[in-house]
């Protein structure tokens, strides 16, 4: 969303030069979503629409509390409801606020072919710079969390910005501001981790032995973290990936394959040129014409 300026970047998509970040004194930020305190009121969802001035199409009831039924270009965060019967046969209502995780190692940015369409700021926020976006959908393939959505209207990709425009001027994200139970917290990543530690302790003392923090190392950690009562099984929460990582297919495509292919093409051209200057063209000789003429019109007159 907000483009801040290039010295705030630590990563820039499809760029051969790393931008010279001078904001290395910047603290890494994080949003902590405490699933155990969420009541599913969707105030955060409304606040997100409100701040970003987004109004999606009115959809249809799909038989679930999820509303709308999926993330979309004008709905960057979504409460996902799961009814789960635990081992004791009790119903647990698991509610997870879905949205961009702001990965430390963002797969979307790795896959993006458009220079500067996806950037990461020194504070850790991963932002889509829409004016550079070409709408190819590669970020969708790069993301381990199935987050970006391409707008059919302007063919650009959209997702949660972590309110980079608010954070840039010292405000907390709109969802954090709106949450009535304090289930969404925002601050430096260090603070959020220690706060999460306290929450996990509390949950454990209340019988949730597997409570824990979701800050998946497979993507280098995330700048949106969850406190889960069942941190041993993240996928209970509407399919939150248990061990997210950038797909090896994407890693091979953007990692080893690209330079190899370009080197192969360059080699092909150079080999051709070398052959040309060493051996030169293959020219038809006068003898060839003479032989051919003799074949077509034999000197003795018969054919």
């Amino acid at each position: 969303m907000a483009d801040l300026q290039s010295q705030d970047y630590i990563r820039r998509s499809a760029s051969t030069m790393t931008p010279p970040s001078i904001r290395n004194h910047e603290q890494e930020v994080a949003k902590l979503i405490d699933v155990s305190r969420c009541i599913g009121c969707k105030a955060c969802q409304s606040a997100c629409m409100e701040w970003n001035n987004l109004r999606g199409e009115v959809g249809h009831f799909e038989g679930s509390y999820d509303n709308p039924s999926d993330l979309n270009p004008s709905n960057w965060t979504l409460m996902r409801f799961t009814e789960w019967e635990n081992e004791q046969g009790n119903l647990e209502w698991l509610i997870r606020k879905d949205g961009c995780m702001h990965c430390e190692d963002p797969g979307c940015l790795k896959a993006c072919p458009a220079p500067g369409a996806i950037v990461q700021y020194a504070n850790g926020i991963v932002d889509f710079i829409s004016e550079n976006c070409i709408g190819c959908g590669y970020c969708v393939k790069g993301c381990p969390f199935d987050i970006p959505r391409i707008s059919p209207v302007d063919h650009k990709s959209y997702k949660c910005t972590l309110c980079s425009d608010r954070v840039g001027v010292g405000l907390e994200p709109a969802c954090v501001k709106a949450c009535p139970t304090g289930a969404i917290m925002f601050g430096s990543k260090t603070d959020m981790k220690s706060w999460a530690g306290e929450r996990v302790e509390d949950l454990k003392s209340r019988g949730f032995d597997e409570a824990g923090l979701y800050d998946p190392p497979g993507v280098g950690g995330t700048h949106v973290m969850y406190v889960l009562h069942h941190a041993d099984r993240p996928s209970l929460y509407a399919g939150l990936p248990d061990k997210p990582r950038i797909s090896p297919l994407v890693a091979v495509w953007k990692g080893i394959f690209k330079p190899l292919a370009l080197a192969g093409m360059a080699f092909g051209v150079v080999a051709g040129f070398l052959h040309w200057i060493v051996q030169g063209p293959n020219e038809v000789q006068p003898e060839d014409e003479a032989h051919a003429a003799a074949l077509i019109d034999p000197p003795d007159g018969k054919q």
């Binding site: 709408g135 190819c136 959908g137 590669y138 969708v140 393939k141 199935d146 391409i150 059919p152 063919h155 797909s247 297919l249 994407v250 091979v252 495509w253 394959f257």
Partner: peptide, 18 residues
């Protein structure tokens, strides 16, 4: 993406793009 993304899974699309 514009016309055909709803018909395949993201994993299929990853294989396809590679």
């Amino acid at each position: 993406d514009v016309y055909f993304s709803p018909y395949t899974t993201i994993e299929t699309q990853r294989i396809a793009v590679l």
